[in-house]
């Protein structure tokens, strides 16, 4: 089983240090939840892992299967099996969902012999995954994320996750902006995809998504570090007590 290892990761955004030594290891098949107050660095971690040019790693290491990915461009990281479901998926006007998925599928599933999957293979997988997630065919002719509702955007992200079959998926606040029904649909979708080959990091503020995607491990991020780790009971404690006690705890440590 491959592992995603984050070791003492420090990162800056426009000169300001946001990540101040993150340590986290996720194995394929495991589900981890990452919680924490606004501005604690959760989304920065997600974007840094995929290599967004705005985020600069100043110290530390990120390994997939023992191989460092910090020098790799985002597309190479995706090919190594890393996936980010975006908190705010951008729209790309003029590019249909279909042509985008085809390009991404080809890019990620092209083998060492440079053999790209055939159009038939692609269409078959697509039909099967869309069926699994209950996504309508009309989705395919629409421009990527353009005019999508909040729920549609997040479902489109999960469809991409299902098509690209990564080893590790980071779901960055996939539950934000969704009503109860949409949340259930999206979370159930993730449930259908989760398997022993997929390690998941769910970034969230709320306990409710964790009712559907049951994490084995829950971590709390505070001011750029993971300051507490535990099981589901930790998320319940956060729900009940809020994040205030973290501050006291951090104060006590310092």
């Amino acid at each position: 089983m491959a592992k995603l290892e984050i070791r003492d990761l420090h990162a800056t955004v426009e000169g300001a240090e946001i990540l101040k030594g993150v340590n986290l290891t996720i194995a394929q098949g495991e589900i981890h939840a990452l919680m924490g107050p606004n501005g604690s660095g959760k989304s920065t971690l997600a974007n840094t892992l995929l290599g967004h040019p705005k985020y600069k790693v100043t110290h530390g290491e990120v390994l997939v299967d023992g191989k460092s990915l910090l020098d790799l461009s985002p597309d190479k990281r995706a090919k190594m099996g890393l996936f980010l479901a975006f908190q705010y998926p951008v729209s790309v006007p003029g590019v249909t969902m279909f042509s985008f998925l085809r390009a991404a599928y080809n890019a990620v599933h092209t083998d060492e012999k440079n053999q790209a999957p055939t159009i038939f293979e692609f269409k078959e997988t697509l039909a099967e995954r869309m069926g699994l997630l209950g996504i309508d065919e009309s989705f395919m002719n629409r421009y990527l994320n353009e005019g999508f509702s909040g729920g549609e955007k997040k479902r489109a992200e999960i469809l991409q996750l299902a098509m690209l079959k990564p080893k590790f998926a980071i779901l960055d606040e996939t539950d934000s902006g969704l009503d109860i029904d949409a949340l259930r649909v999206v979370a159930e979708g993730v449930g259908k995809i989760a398997n022993n080959d997929l390690g998941i990091l769910v970034i969230t503020h709320y306990q409710r998504i964790l009712k559907y995607i049951r994490p084995t491990f829950v971590h709390v991020m505070y001011e750029g570090r993971i300051t507490a780790s535990g099981g589901q009971d930790l998320s319940l404690k956060l729900e009940e007590k809020g994040y205030g006690w973290l501050k006291e705890q951090a104060g006590a440590v310092a």
Binding site: P74, D75, A107
Partner: peptide, 12 residues
Amino acid sequence: QVFYLEARGLPE
């Protein structure tokens, strides 16, 4: 937009 597509495996 570029980052989004790159994160899906497309070279720059």
